[in-house]
């Protein structure tokens, strides 16, 4: 069994937003749709004792997604390998999944024709991986810093497996019980 996950190494991320733009152009997204915003609270602390951090995000491809069971049409679904995606031929745009996601990672575009507003979200580049097996999601490839690492957590030899097992990681909103599958390697900021 394959279970695809992503590790994001915050020690490497410099907040350049390349992944954000890459995703928008690779997937040809409408202007107001952002699958993977890179968040930051800016430089924190009292000058000159300061720190800063960036948090690249994307769909958490949760093990127990909130957004799948709530879908009344079955458009929102999860593959065997854990990929959560929306089949836009089944979606009617009710946005219940958009409201269900605790991470705010789904949306409908308001810059497309009024009656064509289906729910969009990150699919771990499902089509790209299907067309060219072995390729990573495009945000992973495009990251110069190699801060995003993608792979099969079930494979003990995969890089993600090794990292998750050997380095301390955290996940977002674990307390919600969604079991998110994006693992962050923390960077504490400041000077070691």
């Amino acid at each position: 069994m394959t279970r695809n996950v992503m590790v994001i190494d915050l020690r490497r991320c410099v907040g350049c937003q390349s992944c954000t733009v890459a995703c928008r152009t690779w997937n040809d997204l409408p202007m107001d749709i952002i699958y993977n915003p890179v968040l930051t609270e800016g430089v924190q602390g009292d000058w000159p004792n300061v720190h800063r951090n960036w948090l690249p995000t994307l769909c958490m491809h949760c093990e127990n997604p909130e957004c799948v069971p709530c879908c009344p049409t079955g458009a929102s679904q999860q593959d065997e390998d854990g990929t959560v995606w929306v089949d836009h031929t089944k979606c009617m745009g009710c946005k219940v999944c958009v409201n269900a996601c605790p991470y705010g990672m789904r949306d409908v575009s308001h810059m497309v024709p009024r009656f064509d507003q289906y729910v969009r979200k990150c699919t771990f580049c499902r089509d790209r991986r299907q067309n060219e097996p072995g390729k990573d999601p495009y945000c992973v490839q495009t990251c110069h810093q190699k801060a995003r690492i993608f792979g099969d957590i079930e494979d003990p030899n995969s890089e993600v497996s090794k990292l998750i097992n050997s380095v301390e990681t955290f996940r977002l909103f674990e307390e919600l019980g969604t079991n998110p599958q994006i693992y962050y390697i923390p960077f504490l900021g400041g000077h070691r």
Binding site: C70, C71, M92, V96
Partner: peptide, 24 residues
């Protein structure tokens, strides 16, 4: 009207489990 794709509202009846489907 609030749907993103009103013409295909009937898709709401295609699955059985969701709360919103029970409502409909």
């Amino acid at each position: 009207f609030e749907l993103g794709q009103p013409p295909v509202f009937w898709r709401v009846f295609t699955t059985a489990t969701a709360i919103i489907k029970w409502g409909a």
